[in-house]
Simulated assay, not measured.
Amino acid sequence: MMKAPSAAPQLTTLVFLSALAVLPVNMFAPSLPHIAATFSADFALVNLSIAGFAIVAALTQLVAGPLSDRFGRRPVVLCAVAVFTVASIGCALAPSIGVFLVCRFMQAVIATGYSVSLAIIRETSTEREAASKIGLVASAWALAPMVGPAFGGMLDQLFGWRANFVAFAVMGAAVLALVAVDLKPRARTTARPLASYLRGYADLLRSTRFVGYVLCMAFSSGTLYVFLGGAASASAHLLDGSSARLGLLMGIVPAGFMIGSRLAGRYASRYPLSTTVLVGRLLACAGLLVGLLLSAFDVGGVLAFFGPCMFIGLGNGLTMPGANAGAMSVRPDLAGTAAGLAASLTVGGGALIASISGLFLTEASGSHALFVAMFASASTALLWALLVAWRDRSSA
């Protein structure tokens, strides 16, 4: 039985919830050396606080999606934010690296806020309206990782690394109160066994439309991950080893994502989902093709390298809202399950693509090899977008 519709919360509530889901990923990254020094721990062990967080977050979304479909969005989100808040306090008070890592992994349940926010938008909006609203919410996904490390570094410098986790606890408590007030309980429906929601994974994976949208997002994310992994070595000769300049110039990609997300928020409701997805992929491929040609003809310079890379963010900003809305539209009664599965496969697929590319990209490869890898990933995403567009047109 289809779930009864629930009252839509304020969009600002979902923006804060989504921002809280991504902010803990890297806000405390500048504090990693100080954490290692406090606990006299190997840096590789401390670095698990980021890599392990990502793994637990991906697994959490696989479980949280069906739970939110079965028991409702509100209780799942409240539990996730409450656990995150308590875990943040645990990180701030941790007496050892072991306790710190356990609490840090517990923090990863906040990733639930990402997929559940998407599900709430989809079930309270039409398909095109959902893409438009996701575009607006996606701005928070781009802004939070941009300003997070700067804010976290400032807290570390003024008050020490534990202040980051005190800030997480305060933000968690504020979002918990906001969600408790604004996110209304779902109307009572006929209960279905949880196993039926888990079987929904098989139904989704048998859908060409769902798989097409997810693979489009995975290769789009993979393009970004390849850039993040290779930009430092490929541009080292252009920046004279300045990490400050590198960090500033790498911010051009999330800036492009914000622009693309805002454009999606404004125009996605006017056109079919596959249209904004295709436009995003075409822009990303066009920008990277220019970069590839410039590198092939030995046209150097900071602008020649980073300028085309801005189209990675611009294209992804246009692609992700429509692709997410499309993936959740395959089974509207399983919007949470679809959102969680799509998020996990997107992150995992993107990381796998970056790992494979990393086997062929070395410090001696230069910018040309990096552009080849990024263009290959972006082109594959475009092919999946074309497949979905053809499928949608055939269905229509």
Rank of each mutant, 00 (worst) to 15 (best):
A36C: 06
A144K: 03
G148Q: 05
R266S: 12
N26Y: 14
R331N: 12
A36L: 02
P75I: 03
I356V: 15
F375W: 08
K3H: 15
A354H: 10
I110T: 11
A232R: 11
R162E: 12
L62K: 04
A385F: 02
T13I: 04
A7C: 05
L178T: 00
R73M: 07
L352Q: 03
R206C: 12
I97K: 01
W141R: 00
F371E: 06
G229F: 12
V170E: 06
F165N: 03
G340P: 14
V166K: 01
S395P: 07
R206F: 07
L293D: 09
I50L: 15
A173E: 02
P332A: 14
G222A: 10
K184A: 14
A323H: 06
S329L: 09
M250C: 11
V214I: 10
Y225R: 00
A41S: 14
I120H: 10
G307C: 12
V77H: 05
L361A: 08
A396L: 13
V102W: 09
G313V: 01
G307K: 02
F297K: 10
P272Y: 08
L205E: 03
M1Y: 09
A58C: 15
L288K: 02
I89W: 10
D42G: 11
F53G: 02
D69V: 01
S117L: 09
V86S: 10
R266A: 15
Y213D: 11
A191L: 04
V179Y: 04
L23E: 08
V76D: 06
A232V: 06
A19E: 07
P254Y: 01
L294E: 12
Y114W: 01
L341P: 10
P33I: 00
L45W: 08
T223C: 09
M27W: 05
P149H: 06
V25H: 12
I97L: 09
V99D: 10
F105Y: 13
L11C: 07
G366S: 10
I134A: 12
L205S: 03
S196P: 04
F43T: 11
A37H: 13
L62P: 02
R393H: 12
A58G: 12
L288Y: 03
G229Y: 11
Y213G: 12
G260C: 03
V347L: 15
C216Q: 09
S6A: 14
V99S: 15
T13L: 09
M328T: 09
P272V: 02
L198T: 01
T346D: 13
A140V: 06
R270W: 10
G148R: 00
A54W: 00
C79D: 05
V109T: 14
N47D: 15
C285S: 04
Y225H: 07
A343M: 14
R70L: 08
T208M: 09
L32Y: 09
A343G: 15
P185K: 00
I97S: 07
A231F: 06
R128Q: 13
A389G: 05
S233D: 14
G326S: 12
G265Q: 05
T319A: 15
